[in-house]
Design a protein around this nucleic acid. Structure first.
Lengths: 219, 219
DNA sequence: ATCTAACGAGACGATGCGTCTTGTCAAGAC
DNA sequence: GTCTTGACAAGACGCATCGTCTCGTTAGAT
């Protein structure tokens, strides 16, 4: 329910006065209707919840939002991009982007991975997240955006917390923290994607315990 | 290149003579044209290689295969199902389904995970695998088939090899082998899916080393 | 040899695509 | 205060593909 920061369009509102040169497009972002934008994003989220991503249609979004189709095509390259923008503002909790640091790395990791498990089990987030992740296979541009804006910032916060643990002597200094992070996150992601077994807090805890046994300094 | 076993239809060739009762459909599998079936699967593989899964079309498959559309709709529920059947026979190497056992669990796991890395980096397998994995999000039935016929058998072979290691005293007897397997496979899968960093043999080796450090028996 | 259902071909209406056209309207230019 | 401009809602348009449905034709079961 954040007030949706302008999607990083209009980078420098006064830089180049003649947008005519390079591309034949370039709509004027300053004249954009925020009202329509919100209606489109809301409609997309509603419809994806009702019918799933496969049945999501630009025409349906436009109709539900009371908007012309052109208004969607003008500002987004695909329905996936619409859904992405609709999800990200409420999918990312700014407070959760930094991992807690109580000094107990095991406890902190469990806290965060349990929260991740809860998110992945949350019906409201699960469907759109799965849809976007899937669409990544056909839409590399979307994949890059998803990684850069959502995934990577979270992963980096793991790395920071692990580095603190490393400096506190709780993690072997020789270990590549990027890989350490993947050891923790990968198994959760795997279960979520494959739906082979239920994603539970107990599972998250065990992953943390077993992984940390491999990360602790050796005598 | 296996000669395509009849898709497990016609379970008992003489059991119930009247297939008319329950469903209004039920085509006669014994009269099915193997020639058409192969042409369809081949055409699907070709087209997916040429244009990607997103642009794959039932009509295009039918045209390329020299087949009526109905022949596809009669035997497969979706284009994903066609691609699945087209991939599975050559995607599964019967020899690779059992992990090697040289007595050295670390070496054996590295051998297999390196091979997995190679498969995932193989252009020919990568595109269809990604497409099928993605389609799983919208098509739970396909997801179940993929898990049951391809994924789970492979995972079980990991569990067997890990059990042997456990009995040989190389893995802590208290550890849940199902979770141990996910610690190994999850990180690989994560990198493949997110494309955050390249999937290399070195990565596979490090994952094995670090994970095994956590799995070895504690004094 | 007969029967029958799968087959290749393609017509059909329904959808959704992405583009284009029309008239309305509000914000910036003058 | 008028004028200009470009985003806007609405929806028509041609196209692609969908999934269903005939047609004769043909090959396998009996």
């Amino acid at each position: 329910m954040t007030d949706a920061p302008p999607p990083s369009s209009s980078p420098s509102p006064s830089s180049s006065p003649s947008p005519s040169s390079s591309s034949p497009k370039a709509p004027d972002a300053s004249r954009r209707s925020e009202r329509s934008r919100r209606a489109i994003l809301d409609a997309a989220l509603e419809l994806v919840g009702e019918n799933g991503f496969a049945k999501l249609t630009i025409e349906a979004i436009a109709a539900r939002a009371g908007v012309g189709k052109q208004t969607i095509y003008r500002w987004w390259p695909s329905k996936a991009a619409v859904l992405f923008e609709a999800c990200v503002p409420e999918g990312i909790d700014p407070a959760s982007i930094e991992l807690p640091d109580t000094g107990d790395i095991a406890a902190d990791l469990k806290t965060v991975l349990r929260a991740t498990v809860d998110d992945l089990n949350n019906e409201r987030l699960d469907a759109p997240t799965r849809a976007l992740t899937a669409e990544t296979a056909n839409d590399p541009e979307l994949g890059r955006a998803l990684t850069e804006k959502v995934l990577e910032p979270q992963l980096q916060s793991y790395v920071r917390r692990l580095r603190a643990a490393q400096e506190a002597g709780q993690v072997d200094p020789d270990i590549d923290l990027r890989i350490a992070l993947e050891l923790l996150v990968g198994p959760l992601f795997h279960r979520w994607q494959t739906r082979t077994l239920p994603l539970t807090h107990a599972y998250a805890d065990t992953v943390v315990d077993l992984t940390l046994r491999g990360l602790t300094p050796r005598p």
